[in-house]
Design a protein around this nucleic acid. Structure first.
Lengths: 171, 171
DNA sequence: AGTTTATGTCAGCCTTGTTGACTTTCCAAG
DNA sequence: CTTGGAAAGTCAACAAGGCTGACATAAACT
C-alpha cells in the first residue's frame, strides 16, 4: 500500500493526480525557500534606507491603492494600528508618504506615495518582478499559468479566512 | 504601446507568454497572501505550545533530516547560532528534540525528534498539507504541476543565491 | 603545542508584532 | 445642540526572534 498516505487531488473528473505526503512536504519546503528568496532582494534594498519589511508592505499597498485610508491598510495588512502607525510615521517623516486629511470625512487620513516614495516602490517591486521573471522563464509558460492559478486559490482561501474570523480591523 | 512594460517570458520556442508589470504585481501580492495563509494554521497551533515560527522551522528540518547537526541546521535556516540555540534549547528542555553527541566527531550534536516532537511535527505539517490540498483541489491537477515547477525554480534560484553569497554558516 | 572547528552561552540591541489606556477630532443620531 | 461612538493618534510596556560581540569548552586537526 504505497498510497496509504496519498492525497487524491482531482480536477473536474478529467484526470487524477496523486500526491503523497512527501510530495506535499516538498511543496511546503519550496514555499519556505521561495518566499525567502522572494523577500531577499527587497530586504537588502530596504536596509540601505533603514527600513524593514513592514515599511515595504505599507509602501506596496499604498501604491496599489492610492488614497487608501489607514483603516483600510490596517485590515489588509492584519496588524494593529500601533504597529502600522509606527511605520507610517517614519515614512511620512522621511517624505515617502503623504497623509492627507479626508475631505468628506476629516477623521480619515488618505495615504499617497510622494515621488520619492514612488521611486522606492519601483526599486523594490522591480527587484521582485525581476526574480519572478527569472523563475517564470526557467519554468516555461504553461507552468506559469498553473502557478498563477494555484497561487490565486491559496490567496482566495486566505482572504476568505481573513474575512470570516478577524476582519475587525480595529483591535 | 500597451506592451511597453511587458515581460516577455518564453518557453523553448513553443509559445509566448506576455506578462505585464501589473500581472507580475498581482503575482507578488498573491505570494504575500498565500504565504500568510500558509503559515496561519501552524502559527495558531504553535501558540498553544508557546512556540513560534522559529520552532516550527527547526522541527520541520530536523524531521526531514534526522540526525542533522546544529551547523547543518544553521546553514539551512540562515540564522545565527545564538538565535537557533535559543529555540533549540527550549525544544530540548521540553522534550521535543533529542540532542546526541556525535560518535565519530564528539563536538557535533546530532538532532532527532522525540515521539512528542514527531507528534507536533505531524500536527503542524498536516495543517499545512491540508491547506495545500484545498488549493490544489480547487486549481486542478494541471495547474498543480505548473505550480510545483515554478516553485521549484524559485527555490533553486534561492538555494543558489544562498550558496553563493553567504554559506558561511558560522557568523 | 597550537590552531581551528563545533557548540553553547551571556549581554545587549533592533524591528515588529502585541495589549491596554487615554486623548482628540468630528460625524451623525437623537 | 448635545452626546455617543468611530477614526485616528499617542504613550507605555512587553515578547518573539532576528542581530552583534565576546568568551568558554571540548575535540579534532596540523
Amino acid at each position: 500500500m504505497a498510497d496509504r498516505n496519498a492525497a487524491n487531488v482531482m480536477g473536474r473528473g478529467e484526470s487524477l493526480l496523486f500526491l503523497t505526503d512527501d510530495q506535499l512536504r516538498r511543496g511546503i519546503e519550496a514555499m519556505f525557500f521561495a518566499y525567502r528568496g522572494f523577500t531577499a532582494d527587497p530586504d537588502r534594498i530596504l536596509q540601505d534606507y533603514g527600513y524593514g519589511r513592514a515599511h515595504h508592505r505599507a509602501i506596496h499597498f499604498i501604491n496599489r491603492s492610492p488614497g487608501t485610508t489607514v483603516n483600510n491598510l490596517l485590515s489588509i495588512l492584519g496588524v494593529t494600528k500601533q504597529s502600522l502607525n509606527r511605520v507610517l510615521r517614519t515614512l511620512v517623516e522621511d517624505g515617502l508618504v503623504d497623509s492627507r486629511v479626508g475631505t468628506r470625512d476629516k477623521r480619515e487620513r488618505h495615504l499617497f506615495l510622494t515621488p520619492k516614495g514612488a521611486a522606492l516602490e519601483r526599486e523594490l517591486s522591480e527587484a521582485q518582478r525581476s526574480r519572478m521573471r527569472d523563475a517564470y522563464r526557467a519554468a516555461g509558460p504553461e507552468a506559469v499559468a498553473g502557478f498563477r492559478t494555484v497561487l490565486e486559490q491559496m490567496m482566495n482561501l486566505e482572504m476568505r479566512r481573513q474575512y470570516m474570523d478577524g476582519g475587525d480591523g480595529a483591535r
